[in-house]
């Protein structure tokens, strides 16, 4: 009970801080706000700066993806951490670590008589489609720094292809391809790739996630290409985490945390 009151006090305090912060905002739709009119003396507004400088500074034709992976790289990194934390929370809530052997909460359906025709049609379709889906996922990831797409979307598609394998051919078949040890490691490696690229630019002597510093390491002609390539790198990290967590959520929900039997 005391914890509940403590939580309420914390929530009210945070809310009050946020509302207090709102009072410092510029007026709604104000032409002089930093986003629209620019800071006095600086000349350009924030959006104008992005529109004019994104392409020459990062070689990324789509400025939205450049803002996502480069200018607000911190935000995207912690979004990845949020996905990772969500997966770990699912794991903590659902995963049953001690089970009696041979006693599953869900009976594996006997497919020998009635299920065969279903298995042939759905199984064959999935067998044709899963490689195509995974190829498309990699395409979306590879375009992450260049056009709409990227790690989150590609990761979800890649995770969905594993879920499809689990749905069509049994969860244990999918678990053979992507076992628990592998997907937990993958989720952590994804965050590590993202933070590692950030740290790498710090080792070179610049700010965290300042990808331009990686130019000598990547051997690119200028800093813009280094930023472009590093963006692809962090997108790959995001993909690892999102894929693993998507699949982790599915297997934990489908088997009530036992990772046996399943749907």
């Amino acid at each position: 009970m005391a914890m509940k009151w403590l939580a309420l006090v914390a929530v009210v305090f945070t809310g009050a801080l946020l509302i207090y912060g709102v009072s410092d905002f510029p007026d709604w739709g104000s032409a002089d706000s930093p986003a629209n009119g620019g800071i006095e003396g600086a000349g350009r507004s924030v959006s104008q700066t992005f529109i004019q400088e994104t392409k020459p500074l990062t070689h990324v034709p789509n400025m939205v993806t450049a803002v996502l992976a480069d200018y607000r790289g911190y935000d995207t990194m912690f979004e990845t951490v949020v996905v990772f934390a969500a997966g770990m929370a699912i794991f903590a809530v659902l995963r049953v670590l001690k089970t009696v052997d041979g006693q599953h909460s869900r009976v594996i359906r006997d497919r020998s008589v009635d299920g065969d025709h279903q298995r042939i049609i759905v199984g064959t379709t999935c067998k044709i489609l899963i490689p195509v889906i995974q190829m498309f996922a990699l395409y979306v990831v590879a375009h992450g720094h260049h056009s709409p797409g990227g790690g989150f979307q590609g990761g979800v598609i890649l995770g969905a292809s594993f879920i499809l394998l689990g749905l069509s051919d049994g969860m244990e078949t999918a678990m053979e391809r992507l076992s628990e040890g592998k997907f937990v490691a993958m989720a952590a490696i994804g965050v590590l790739i993202y933070a590692g690229i950030g740290l790498l630019s710090q080792f070179v002597g610049r700010d965290f996630l300042d990808y331009g510093a990686l130019q000598p390491l990547l051997g690119t002609p200028d800093e813009g290409w280094a930023r472009s390539h590093a963006m692809l790198g962090v997108e790959v990290g995001v993909t690892f985490t999102v894929t693993a967590i998507m699949f982790a959520i599915y297997v934990n929900l489908a088997s009530k945390g036992e990772l046996k039997g399943g749907l």
């Binding site: 025709h117 279903q118 379709t125 489609l129 195509v132």
Partner: peptide, 20 residues
């Protein structure tokens, strides 16, 4: 091509689920 493959399979899977 993908619609042609997936849509009938989807209908089939739903019908099969209904039958079971």
């Amino acid at each position: 091509a993908f619609i042609m493959i997936t849509s009938p399979t989807c209908t089939h899977a739903l019908m099969d689920a209904g039958w079971e």
